[in-house]
Simulated assay, not measured.
Amino acid sequence: MKMLVIYTHPNHQSLNYAFLEKVIQGSSENKHISEIQVLDLYEEQFDPVLIFNENKRRRDMHIDPKLGKYREQLLHADKIVFVYPIWWGRPPAMLLGYIDQMFASNFAYRDKGGLLPEGLLKGKSVVCISTMKGPALYPLFWLNNAHKVLMRKALFRYVGIKKVKFFEYGSMEGPNGRQERKLNRIYQYFKSVGL
Rank of each mutant, 00 (worst) to 15 (best):
L155F: 01
Y187T: 01
K133V: 13
Q73R: 12
V126T: 02
M132P: 10
D40I: 05
N144K: 15
K22D: 09
P91I: 13
L137D: 15
E118T: 12
E54F: 09
I80S: 00
E118H: 10
I51N: 10
E21Q: 15
I129W: 01
F167A: 03
C128A: 13
L121A: 02
E54W: 07
I24S: 12
T131A: 06
L143S: 11
H9S: 03
D47K: 06
Y138H: 15
G160T: 07
Q25M: 13
K69V: 09
Y70R: 02
Y17R: 12
L20A: 08
E35V: 09
D40E: 04
E21W: 09
I51K: 13
L20W: 06
Q25L: 15
V38A: 04
P139Y: 03
E168A: 11
S14E: 02
A18Y: 04
R57L: 14
K69G: 06
I99N: 02
Q179N: 07
Y189H: 13
V81M: 01
W88C: 08
Q45H: 10
L75A: 00
S192W: 09
V83Y: 05
K182T: 07
K163N: 14
I99Q: 04
E180F: 08
G26Y: 11
P175T: 06
V83L: 07
H62Y: 15
P85C: 05
G114P: 01
S192Y: 13
K148Y: 08
N53F: 02
Y98V: 01
G123S: 04
F156P: 03
H9V: 04
A77T: 02
Q45C: 06
P139K: 02
S14C: 00
R90I: 15
P175D: 10
G123W: 08
L195R: 11
H12F: 09
Q179P: 00
L74T: 01
M172C: 09
K133H: 12
Y42E: 00
Q25T: 14
S27T: 05
K2A: 00
Y138M: 15
